[in-house]
Design a protein around this nucleic acid. Structure first.
Lengths: 254, 254
DNA sequence: CGATTTCAATAACGTATGTTACATTGCACA
DNA sequence: TGTGCAATGTAACATACGTTATTGAAATCG
């Protein structure tokens, strides 16, 4: 639909010039594609051709073993960029599939070359995106290696919540939440049955309200404590600006 | 000691010019520091100031929970670069510690700015490094989420083996291996006891010979099968050049 | 609008891996 | 050249989570 989420997110970190806005706007309207829900956008083994910018909808990156075991290795929310500069690699080592209907803009190699030469702020912003995604992946490693099922689930929900909030996609204490328990199982490395048990436990503790495709987080602090969640790895701050300020601004705006 | 491993590795992917070599050589001799074994180089919460290039020795990145649970999220081998452009972030979200004695070269922000402007090959090579590290982190997510203890351990050993080989640090079918079972436990998310059981099982199957600080892999193919290891994620190939060619060249040279 | 499939919920039972404890080996250093 | 501490090895026991199966509730669709 729009690149509002991307701009909102990047501007938490760097101040973009009016020209930068024009550049990003053009890049995100030129080559747009639409996909249905539960469909593959990119398959492991393919030659990466473009960088994908999620304009709307949810998607995930996943890997699969020959025997069918499947791991979701990251989620893409609106405003996320799949992988800056992937096209220098020969083939994809993972697949990307949609959760909901998704609109993406394809960013070409040329686009990046031009940006690199002429728009240093955007370059910095993209490096920020790259480094944060790396940090998220490390935190998932931490979760899968050390956190219990309950902690892991709480942690994941906190992360998604904060990322949505940064993109301007939460309303008060609730948000759209299109993931099934199967998706959560693939992302947390738990069985579907145990995901169900774990969600029940979070509900019983009043930590989440999850019904249909809506998630509410009545008390983020408590959920964060349950997930041993330290938001530092999301690097949602510019010099002199704290995470709380972001949240407060959001609350005031919404 | 030297940047031979870095250059060897990068040149598997891009062909660097003589000038590029000079640039890298200067960068890696200007500001060198030495550390003892089992020491922290960087601590979570610190302001990142430089990018670190490992000249010699092994190190790891790790994260820790308040109650002490600890996860190694990646290993650094000679020739590895810790995180291109980290200095744009406000604070480290993880720590870096040494396994053995380590020599590192600190690469400054200025260095990257100059390289970006004048040495496109090096930029491409650094992007390759960045993308491969991201792919490795995803593969660890896969391992921790889906692979059994045995598969996980076999997979990790394959990965380390191939990375060492690419850096020119294997001799025939064996290599230095300074990790303790405790390190392996922190990296695989298993207990030390189960790491021991798992190594015994790999030994019993003739998949590894691990004694003292030396690892031998008598049959890489079998170890790869045991770990459900697909080397694609390491992207050890340039157009028209296959992984096998790399291995063959190495065998011939060694 | 009924038919069909997907998703969520729950129960009974199984197991891979964790925990605690202690013995043994190896290696750094006095 | 012992002596002490870290690393490895092993056993007995505990448990968090997986597996299989069944049911009901919601979406989805012809």
């Amino acid at each position: 639909m729009s690149l509002a989420s991307l701009v909102r997110k990047l501007e938490q970190f760097v101040r973009l010039s009016p020209v930068d806005h024009v550049i990003l706007n053009r890049a995100s309207t030129e080559r747009v594609r639409h996909f249905g829900p539960r469909v593959d956008i990119v398959r492991e083994g393919e030659k990466p051709k473009d960088v994908h910018l999620i304009l709307s909808g949810w998607a995930y990156r996943y890997k699969q073993l020959e025997d069918g075991r499947r791991q979701v290795v990251s989620f893409f929310l609106p405003g996320d960029i799949c992988d800056v500069n992937v096209f220098i690699l020969r083939e994809m080592d993972h697949s990307i599939g949609t959760v909901t209907a998704v609109s993406i803009a394809d960013l070409s190699r040329d686009f990046f070359d031009r940006v690199a030469a002429e728009h240093p702020r955007i370059v910095t912003a993209f490096w920020w995106e790259t480094l944060v995604n790396a940090a998220i992946q490390r935190e998932w490693t931490m979760s899968l290696g050390q956190r219990t099922a309950l902690e892991r689930m709480a942690h994941l929900l906190c992360e998604i919540w904060l990322r949505l909030r940064l993109a301007g996609l939460t309303q008060g204490d609730s948000c759209d939440f299109p993931l099934t328990q199967g998706d959560l199982a693939d992302a947390t490395g738990l069985s579907k049955v145990h995901v169900n048990r774990t969600l029940q436990e979070l509900r019983a503790g009043g930590l989440i309200v999850l019904k249909g495709k809506t998630l509410a987080v009545p008390n983020l602090d408590r959920l964060m404590r349950a997930g041993l969640f330290n938001p530092n790895y999301l690097h949602m701050d510019r010099e002199g600006r704290q995470l709380d300020a972001v949240g407060a601004a959001d609350a005031a705006a919404g």
